[in-house]
Design a protein around this nucleic acid. Structure first.
Lengths: 68, 68
DNA sequence: TTTATATGTAAGGTTTACTTTACACAAAAT
DNA sequence: ATTTTGTGTAAAGTAAACCTTACATATAAA
């Protein structure tokens, strides 16, 4: 699903691994979400949105994304 | 995870099966979410929030719920 | 009293979101 | 020139979100 994770992460000067640590998942999980390999669980979506201080719907673009 | 699905569904006069049809899952999936047996996928959370015309964060109470 | 409807739950199966380990590669630092 | 860092990806495994089928029970309708 399309999302703003990569831009926001880079704005904060974080690596994928660092962001993974912050939200409690592996760097591969962050990579997969940034590269649209799989959709996050609802809890990971929540944790990322919380970290970036926005809503899940703002961080993840449901309307412009294809359902997998 | 705690949520408002049951109240909102009943307010609309729908059965679990009918709500399941509307959002494209089985009635057991709706039941499981209402009874807090498992957490929805991010897409199901989105579809339910859309159906009830609110945000995911309004429909699902992350802050008061235990992570499973 | 019988039948239909709504809910709850369980079993067994599939899919996918994760994990760890591992390797390749590019760019930056030493 | 060599080493470190960040990213991308793959394989194998686990956990959980679904699915279908099935059965039990309670209430409502006939």
């Amino acid at each position: 699903m399309k999302n703003k994770v990569k831009e926001l992460r880079e704005q904060q000067g974080l690596t994928q691994a660092q962001l993974g640590e912050k939200v409690g998942v592996s760097r591969q999980a962050i990579n997969a979400i940034e590269k649209n390999k799989f959709d996050p669980s609802i809890w990971l979506a929540y944790d990322l949105a919380l970290f970036f201080n926005m809503s899940i719907e703002e961080l993840f673009d449901f309307k412009e994304s294809e359902r997998k």
